[in-house]
């Protein structure tokens, strides 16, 4: 009898593994394990710094002192700070103008490069150069190009007899704003152009053939075939382009440090200046956090706006 019982129980033990084993074999658990490394990285290197930054913005933390919670005081002080509002204005101007021009020129360049051109591969590589060169190096080059005494642009114009004196590129507030925007555009065009070019190459040729058969003009082919097919990638490219431009730091830091008269200070550079050399970590964090709503708005606009089918089909709300 006893033998029989054991014989009956043994197979049952194999069929019903322990709780831990069952858990380890569960699909959900496996998914969780596979997600863990990515989730850990995201939590450690994205969520934690972001959370810490938001927290610091509510404190009077200074370098070497953790600070105490002061609620919205940093934001209240910033609200009354004309330099902060100047930086907000500069950031918007910089982002809007640079992004629009980068998009226009980038799309134009992509359309040209999408045609059969001689030395196409070399041309595409050349277009990428401004993007490949480290920002700091290109910024230093621009620093010389815009120099009040040694500018190659001024030198050429003076030699050609077009100007009588050198242009004060970075010493005049309006010129300085235009100059840093131009430098940003030069650097950002390749990213837009090459990514849009990749998008252009995914559009089936048959659509263009059908449009030609229907008698569509080149503009109509662009307006009703190319552009709608490209909008999803435009949404992604412009989201990134706006983010990169809005958070730009290196160009300004090398070229002007926010001068002259704070005319080129962006929110990112002001945040750094206040937080690190100035030691006001809380206030610097508050400026950085103030950028988040604008960045979120830009992302939401890109994702939910530009991807709307109605917009893609040329209609409006």
């Amino acid at each position: 009898m006893a033998v029989d019982v054991n014989q009956r129980r043994a197979p049952a033990a194999i069929e019903q593994p322990g709780r831990l084993k069952r858990l380890s074999r569960s699909k959900g658990m496996m998914s969780l394990w596979f997600m863990m490394p990515a989730a850990t990285i995201l939590l450690l290197f994205l969520a934690y710094p972001l959370g810490l930054g938001v927290w610091l913005g509510f404190t009077d933390a200074k370098i070497g002192r953790s600070g105490v919670f002061i609620g919205l005081e940093n934001y209240a002080w910033l609200f009354d700070d004309p330099v902060f509002w100047l930086a907000v204005f500069n950031t918007f101007l910089y982002t809007v103008v640079a992004s629009i021009v980068k998009f226009g020129l980038g799309l134009w360049l992509a359309l040209i490069l999408n045609h059969h051109l001689p030395f196409k591969a070399i041309l595409r590589a050349v277009v990428l150069l401004p993007w490949i060169v480290p920002t700091v190096l290109s910024a230093i080059a621009f620093w010389w190009i815009y120099d009040a005494q040694f500018s190659i642009i001024s030198w050429t114009l003076v030699k050609l007899g077009i100007l009588t004196e050198y242009i004060d590129f970075l010493g005049d507030p309006a010129n300085a704003r235009a100059s840093v925007i131009a430098a940003n555009i030069w650097r950002g065009i390749p990213f837009v152009a090459i990514t849009l070019l990749a998008g252009l190459q995914t559009i089936p040729q048959s659509l263009y053939e059908a449009a030609v058969i229907d008698g569509a003009s080149p503009w109509q082919r662009f307006r009703y075939v190319t552009f709608p097919m490209l909008t999803p990638i435009i949404a992604v490219v412009m989201t990134f382009s706006v983010l990169f431009t809005f958070t730009d730091f290196q160009l300004i830091y090398v070229l002007t440090r926010g001068g002259p008269l704070n005319a080129t200070h962006l929110m990112a550079t002001l945040s750094f200046q206040r937080a690190i050399p100035g030691g006001q970590l809380g206030e610097g964090a508050a400026i950085a956090v103030s950028m988040i709503p604008f960045l979120l708005a830009a992302i939401l606009f890109s994702y939910f706006g530009l991807q709307r089918r109605r917009w893609q089909q040329g209609g409006s709300d």
Binding site: A148, Q149, F150, D168, F169, G171, R257, P260
Partner: peptide
Amino acid sequence: IPGTLSWLDPNNNKVYLA
């Protein structure tokens, strides 16, 4: 000399040596 509103620390060295 024009341009001093934009001068950072290295500018005057460059201009002087030129």
